[in-house]
Nucleic acid binder design. Structure first.
Lengths: 231, 231
DNA sequence: TCAAAAGTGTTCGCCCTACACCCATGA
DNA sequence: TCATGGGTGTAGGGCGAACACTTTTGA
């Protein structure tokens, strides 16, 4: 790196923080880390950490996620950059926040030894959060609510094969309102991006539902033709 | 500031860049600055600069805008944060991009002496841009196209009082398609957020159109009641 | 009186909504 | 056979799309 800076002023520190969402039976869940260092020692916080000089922002977010929670290869999207002056009591820290969506069943967080301080919390039963993480989490929640309706990102919260009831439940939890079963099915199936498999659910004490999967290829093709996903 | 950093690694530099949009008779315009320093000396670039240690990101964006273009008190919103490793040939620079909307008629850029290197360009006739600013501009353009349809931000590009034809033209330019005059008027007027004034346009060589204004108070009230703007 | 843009109404089809019953399966 | 959720059809209303003519004004 050349030493030809125009400005030699003090620089803010730069971090990433990640809001990881998942879907429980009944709740939207978020992954939190219990801090083992000051400040806010013992309090819960979003996973995250400093951006290294030789990694992109998304790389930093993925690295921190893996280190702190064991999660990898998951859907990740930039959320917003928080630059308030008093975010961190130690010094000026600007953080680029990301949000991630995972399928709870497919990722065993507890298996990772580094993740012993990580845990899932229901959005309705959150602990007090360190720093301004409550605000970041709220921003992420609003973004998810808004975006899930016009981008097919909800599928990231489900296993590869899912029932239409599961999909409907997902929207009901995120949008926080009930949907009509018949209308929901008609709408989803009329878009051709959710394809029937010939498998059915297992181990249920009643008629087993058919499993479907999201057909990304068809979605991409239709999108190029001007198709617009919307629930 | 206490000197208790956990990490003393090299830090990326942090800047802000701003995409300022305005509306000409026929085109969407963007404000660019001709660089007078290396790198990219003489090339056009987005206004922007380094974030000071004691100012928020938005404050930095507003300060740079005023210094470089003379624009102030305008609509400004965070766009995206760009953190690629090779954005700046000198060193690692992360930039928080904003976009701004201004009413061309209301802001005389040329009046500001510091803005002698600033100029408006039609989006259809852009010069080559410094750094990764072409990508930032493209991202801003996509955001504007997407957002203008479901948030009443388009009014920021018009004078306080405007004709429905002007408003329609705005949407036609940004969305890049023609709209039906009758349907457009019906839709806009059926939402009660655009109010008739009793003034008419001046100095036109034909029947003068009535002037309208955006009623933010009513918009906020309706929004609280669940109303959702959409064109 | 002409040119140029302002301003207005109606029909049609589609999609969203609301709503109730039969079906398949495991216990 | 019963309990549980899976799965389907239809009618009505509202909204967006398509479309053409009259009005007003200044030149």
């Amino acid at each position: 790196m050349k030493k030809t800076h125009q400005y030699e002023y003090a620089r803010p520190a730069l971090t990433v923080d990640i809001v990881v969402f998942a879907l429980d039976e009944n709740d939207l869940m978020v992954m939190l880390i219990q801090r083992d260092l000051d400040p806010f020692e013992g309090q819960w916080a979003l996973p995250g950490g400093f951006v290294h000089i030789d990694e992109t922002l998304e790389d930093a977010a993925r690295r921190e996620l893996q280190e702190e929670t064991g999660l990898k290869d998951i859907y990740l999207e930039q959320l917003y950059t928080f630059g308030g002056l008093q975010r961190d009591p130690r010094e000026r820290v600007v953080t680029v926040a990301y949000y991630a969506l995972v399928n709870l069943a497919g990722h065993n967080v507890q298996a990772n030894t580094d993740a012993r301080n990580a845990a899932w919390f229901a959005m309705s039963e959150l602990p007090e959060l360190a720093f301004d993480h409550a605000m970041i989490l709220q921003t992420a929640h609003e973004r998810l609510r808004g975006k899930v309706r016009y981008q097919p990102i909800g599928f990231e919260l489900l296993p590869e094969k899912f029932t239409l009831r599961q999909l409907q439940h997902l929207y009901e939890v995120i949008l926080d309102r009930e949907l009509d079963k018949r209308n929901f099915r008609k709408k989803v199936l009329s878009m051709e991006i959710v394809k029937e498999t010939n498998e059915i659910e297992k181990d249920v004490a009643h008629r087993a539902a058919r499993l479907f999967r999201f057909d990304k290829k068809t979605y991409d093709k239709l999108t190029k033709q001007g198709f617009h996903f919307e629930i």
